[in-house]
Nucleic acid binder design. Structure first.
Lengths: 129, 129
DNA sequence: CGGGGTGTATTGCTTGACATATACACCCCG
DNA sequence: CGGGGTGTATATGTCAAGCAATACACCCCG
């Protein structure tokens, strides 16, 4: 339905961690805004074909990060976030994602110019498709 | 010694996979050239503090990729590689490394310009440090 | 207050990937 | 041919992930 989350059981990455990471991105991007309700554990577990407890485990981690609010008996909601903090989150996420690409370019001896050009090209191509 | 490989047992990524990935990069970058002998399983396992079989498993995978040659009773050697193929490998490795950063920028709604600028800055800063 | 919704603690169990320990086959070289 | 090097097949151990079932606490709403 919501198509909010997709998990790959065979990716080697634990499912609960995939859920955490994807929700984290959705919150940072604004697709999930303050006060929005997150689909229930039973809903998600059915959609994804995993155990409800697996989803719950992801929720606990998100709450420890301060991104969502757990209220007994009620669905999880996204916590409000200051504009500047949200911007920092977005940058931090992209930075983390680029970190390994930086080291890779260095180890391969690829110049900053070439690496940057490749990244820009990939971003552009992604627009079309 | 060789400082060719470093593994982090607590990274969550399987050790044998870390070895494969790092050797793959070293071969693509030219740090390991055609005919070069790869440190023995016992050497590497001692350096890294892991089991020889863990190293061996990495070797098998590299052989399946066609990057090294296994010879019974003899050390592994790097297989010769055509120049253009090597160049393709380097680009492919960097592309694979950038792939997730592309999707991340898209999902976060960060523009191509901004994302590219961030990558360039990170690459530059890496030069100093 | 009762029914149906929410999230979760608990327990036990299965599974599979990962790492390990042991033993073996092979090669080179003196 | 024998010792010390190579890689590795086989079996064993181990641990986190996931599944399942149960039970609980809470909330909303009629």
């Amino acid at each position: 339905m919501s198509d909010l989350i997709r998990v790959d059981v065979n990716s080697g990455v634990p499912v609960f961690r995939q859920i955490v990471e994807q929700l984290r991105v959705h919150i940072a991007s604004g697709r999930l805004g303050a006060g929005d309700e997150i689909p229930s554990t039973r809903m998600l577990s059915q959609d994804l074909g995993v155990n409800p407890m697996t989803v719950s485990k992801a929720f606990v981690l998100l709450e420890e990060e301060g991104l969502v609010e757990r209220r007994p008996g009620l669905p999880l909601i996204v916590r409000p976030r200051r504009r500047d903090a949200a911007d920092q989150d977005r940058t931090a996420l992209l930075e983390a994602s680029l970190e390994q690409a930086v080291q890779m370019a260095r180890q391969l001896g690829i110049s900053t110019t070439q690496a940057t050009a490749l990244y820009r090209r990939m971003l552009s191509e992604c627009d079309d498709g």
